[in-house]
């Protein structure tokens, strides 16, 4: 049976003990029925930091000053965005705390993208077995990977690596500029 995150509303598989989108802990049925918000201490995690997009370039997402160099991360650069100020900006997303991060327009996403053509919950990026994968989570305008001549829609979990170019919706293109998986 799936459950819905009380923080961001995302649907999660029963086997997940924390929300795959925002990292909030799962709340038991009994507690949620009573309307008491108690997070399971075993899986409780710090709330995600504000959108990486609003942080200084190069800053890791979860813990700006503390990420040791051996942690897993993906670094993106915005090469196209409806926001002029984002163009060229680099964003480093840490995967050591959560191996799956959410991408979308709404603020509860780990990687928030200010673009009207990007869905509130758009895609997720997962670290799995030393490789990074991209998956669309039912966005309206799609997620695409550049194949060298055109952007191809991501229909299923698709591997991304350094130099991959990813388009979210119609107006945002990011380049994977650096990758580390430990």
């Amino acid at each position: 049976m799936t459950w819905f995150c009380t923080k961001c509303g995302s649907q999660n598989e029963d086997s997940e003990s924390a929300c795959v989108v925002c990292g909030s802990g799962k709340i038991s049925e009994m507690e949620s029925q009573q309307g008491v918000i108690v997070q399971d201490p075993g899986t409780q995690q710090p709330a995600p930091e504000p959108s990486p997009v609003q942080q200084a370039p190069q800053a890791p997402v979860s813990r700006p000053a503390e990420v040791p160099p051996e942690e897993s991360f993906l670094e993106f650069q915005f090469v196209q965005s409806p926001m002029d100020s984002l163009m060229g900006k680099k964003v480093k997303v840490n995967f050591s705390v959560f191996p799956s991060v959410s991408v979308g327009r709404s603020p509860e996403n780990v990687m928030q993208i200010p673009d009207a053509s990007v869905s509130r919950m758009h895609a997720k990026i997962m670290l799995d077995g030393g490789s990074y994968y991209l998956e669309d989570v039912g966005s309206s305008n799609g997620t695409f990977i550049y194949d060298g001549s055109k952007f191809v829609e991501v229909k299923e979990k698709t591997k991304i690596q350094e130099k991959s170019l990813v388009k979210f919706g119609e107006g945002t293109i990011v380049k994977v500029t650096s990758v580390k998986a430990v």
Partner: peptide, 19 residues
Amino acid sequence: PREYVDGFLPGTRGEGTYL
């Protein structure tokens, strides 16, 4: 034109446009 694009990349203005 885009500073951080290598070569030509399909643009976001629609089919047939490039950065």
